[in-house]
Design a protein around this nucleic acid. Structure first.
Lengths: 211, 211, 211, 211
DNA sequence: CCATAAACGAGACGGTACGTCTTGTCTTTCT
DNA sequence: AGAAAGACAAGACGTACCGTCTCGTTTATGG
């Protein structure tokens, strides 16, 4: 990634203090727009530069690849959206009813994944991350894990309340309902529905075998 | 897909009976080898043709894209491997102990996903399928669903044996342990271990809440 | 030069028999037109390709540089012009009156150098030849020397007729009136006139010292 | 040219009195060195600035183009060389023997043209002047004509001494031996020798026709 | 058993995009 | 205010592939 290597050895990053904020914004906007309009593979760096009214070199100066641009653009979009939505927008609620709380959050996730503004870029990043180890790592640590941590927190609270068995590892447990949803979305085995996510929660919480 | 529409209306496929089996094999081999060596994005059709000792047109005549070539190559590899391994290699065993059976199959899956011969091309296809709707569909129906169907069969047998609640939908149930594994593999959140897959099965079967 | 190395060692020339004559023509035309319109330095290979309706690679495949393209284009123009003008158009006439013959040819040369179709490309080539040894050699041997040889022939005939001293080297002698003209043209010390070329011939033939 | 128009209308030159002499020198040196090392076309303004330890803007502030820089650098080199050699180094000697005097000066010119310090930049300037009208004019008037004037002076003296016919135009006459030499040098039809220049003088003075 | 037609290898073609390089302008910071 | 530094918009460079389009040259029947 092109980010925060304050003392990169090989190719010394240019002076970030003199960077044009205007260009950065324009590049983010152009990148996200293009991915939405023509898809990730047909989004070219030349087109991003042209649309942003920016020289190609300005992109190559600050990012190492198309994927890198898009990743930062997407993270920026996330931040801006989060700010606009207020601080604790992403926290899993805790009403005391674990099943209901999880279902509510998953339903919200379904809605978000359907938002076309997010769909194209996040698909693109997920796909690229599958094939590009480095980007995949950043994608996971910067974007995915923070969200998942919210589930961990909620599940741990549930453990303390006695709603979840104490020997359960929350980080693994959350995958029982989050991964299937992600999988369906990624592989367009969808359409995924509220009913589907509700079912996932029920199965995961109460198990498959007769009680 | 480029496969066997003997009476396609738009662009009539050439006479498949005169097709060179030699070339097809060489192209499959070259494609898989290249994806393994340089990765999917750097695998070009020109390079496949050159390595296979084949004219570019021979590729374009029979396949519609790089992804298409690779998909068929991979399916062919699967068939050959399956044949070599004996017929019902992929069936989920039924020893009567459901948990043990599922754990065994997932452990086998872990081993297979680690096989470097399979890793690069299947990652590539999975990634492409995320972004390319058409290929994604073929990938899912031709490669993924048949494997999943084996789980469905086993789970249904378990339902009849009373090991699984009768109201459970097996197609959804299997995702509780299959999807997390796939997810971890795709997003290199691995290393995934036998312990991990065992845990998944236990969580899924017995649920997260205290019994 | 990119020409006629039937067995080049390093980079094997592509198959010339399959070359597109249409493209070659279009490239010649575009190159000459552009040099005439915007000048040599602002004539880019991209612009030539675009104007010729040709891919850049088609230029790089057959020529090694902008100068190379222009040189061949100019030679081709010369050939076509010569063919159009009839076979011995360029021969120095021999009316028996050496001074008159030379003056006539030089006047014709003056006219030719003023022809705007020829001016820009030949200036460009001459300039490039000054700085680029390899191109310079080709420029001189392929374009310049053949013309000068005509003067040599005429001067030798004059020697046999007793009009020129027998100890004179014709190849050097011709430079007395040809080089000054070329120099004036190249360095825009012009306007050069018929009067000027006449004077050169007179000075050269009869010398500067009193007879 | 960018030189000393203290009251240019369009773009008023910056205050020349505050100009850094140090930078000017460094730029001259860097320009000449680079032209000698990598040739004129590969000499870039960026490289000159870097080598001179100077900001690019400092070059653009005082000169209008690469050719302009080099022209001034070369003129400066000439002045310094002349100063080092004594005042009337360039005057054509007058021993009374015109032929001998001319031959001596031409031999000195041959030596000078062979000096590698001068060769690269003067070739470059000559070539540029062929194609760039404006620079050509400056090149001719500032560098060429002053030298040629020395020949004019000597020839006029010879006319007064009766060694040259009175109706001869010295400015044209000198071209009979100077231009061929220049031509041979520019178009590397060389190697030019003392013998060659001697021959030129003899031919020019005594003419080609039998006396 | 040849004639003929299709697939084949080769690779030239018009294009698009790449990532790099240089241009000439502009801005920041130091002196 | 000049200078060093260098980011910027612009755009050409030469390369790599794309997908299409000829070229001869194998095959491989089917008349």
């Amino acid at each position: 990634m092109a980010v925060q290597k304050s003392a990169a050895p090989g190719k010394p990053h240019p002076d970030a203090t003199r960077r044009s904020e205007r260009s950065r914004r324009a590049i983010y906007d152009a990148a996200l727009a293009l991915v939405g309009e023509v898809g990730y593979p047909k989004t070219t760096i030349e087109a991003i530069a042209a649309r942003a009214g920016v020289g190609k070199q300005t992109i190559y100066r600050w990012w190492s690849s198309k994927a890198d641009v898009l990743l930062e653009a997407f993270m920026d979009l996330g931040e801006r959206t989060a700010q606009a939505a207020g601080q604790d927008a992403d926290a899993v609620p805790d009403t005391g009813d674990l099943a209901a709380d999880l279902k509510a959050v998953l339903r919200a996730t379904v809605d978000e994944l359907r938002d076309p503004r997010f769909e194209a870029p996040s698909r693109a990043l997920a796909a690229e991350g599958v094939v590009n180890e480095e980007l995949g790592r950043v994608f996971v640590t910067k974007l995915l894990e923070p969200s998942l941590q919210l589930y961990v927190d909620r599940l741990r609270a549930a453990q303390e309340a006695g709603d979840i068995r104490p020997d359960i590892d929350p980080r693994i447990a959350l995958e029982l309902f989050v991964s299937p949803l992600a999988q369906r979305w990624l592989q367009h085995t969808a359409p995924f529905s509220y009913e589907y996510t509700d079912t996932l929660v029920d199965y995961a919480l109460y198990g498959l075998v007769p009680r």
